[in-house]
Nucleic acid binder design. Sequence first.
DNA 1: AGTACTTGATTGAAAGTTCAACCATGTGCT
DNA 2: AGCACATGGTTGAACTTTCAATCAAGTACT
Lengths: 162, 162
Amino acid sequence: MTDLTIASVNETRWLDETQQQAWRSFLGGTTVLMDRLDRDLRSEHGLSMSEYEILVRLSEAPDRSIRMADLAAALSHSRSRITHTISRLERDGIVLRTQCGTDGRGVTAVLTDRGFELLATAAHTHVRGVREYLIDQCSAEDLAATQRVMDAIQAAIGGRTF
Amino acid sequence: MTDLTIASVNETRWLDETQQQAWRSFLGGTTVLMDRLDRDLRSEHGLSMSEYEILVRLSEAPDRSIRMADLAAALSHSRSRITHTISRLERDGIVLRTQCGTDGRGVTAVLTDRGFELLATAAHTHVRGVREYLIDQCSAEDLAATQRVMDAIQAAIGGRTF
DNA sequence: AGTACTTGATTGAAAGTTCAACCATGTGCT
DNA sequence: AGCACATGGTTGAACTTTCAATCAAGTACT
């Protein structure tokens, strides 16, 4: 700690050509992929990617229900965003809000049967996209390497700070 | 073409455990990374990631200027989004709009000196983030593999369809 | 020249996200 | 009990993105 010079703290190490290209590809690839998956889901089922992700989490949870704050943490969304999104989904009969039994402050979102059916249908579109655009486009080794990179990123950044 | 059965067209091949995990990591990693880079840029320089990307492109272009449509294509944004974003940047004195000489319809955005200086400052933050969260977190081989995957995605999806 | 069609860009409204302020409930300390 | 403080969730306003409609200018074909 005391050995750090001002220079070592302030100096910016720029990216070399290779790194720069890797970063551009990363940026371009994720943008294009997310955008396309979102678009497919929207046009075929009227669901956005983030709505879809919420439904997936709920469908896997016990009683198909998760508390708002846990949902927010799992998806790296703000509490506020979850509130608004769940409100829209509730308006459309896809989820339901219930009071949490053990914690007076808590609200848990529950997937309705209608919501489950919508998810079951939309999943075809989503999985087809993930396969067609990502999984079928690269070797298993490269996919595994990509996964290592993604996991490292998440480890480096850790939980969200609000 | 004529050999395809209905089944081969309609049947959904679900993801196995490994693929599913890879996809979850992908989703989580990109979400967390983009979110963090955006947040850093915003809090330190009042710039969003997409605004920053526009400035980068402009700064590298001849005369530090690019036509609106080309900017939209390069960043996979809609024309409308570029119009609105450039309007905000123009209001803040970061870019300028000029008529394109050769095409009466065209408008080209130009980076101002003020905009260039802002970019030069913000670049430190951005590059530090890319290094800290991504490049320093993985091996060069895994980064190269990730780049191959990203390039394959872009090739598979190709240009945006509006 | 005149017609239809495409491309470039903007506009305004609707939808979604963020941010700060707020209220209610739980937790810990004295 | 009473206090401060942290946590869970909502709200409304500001901001950003999307979508459909519009206008202007280029291109192609007759």
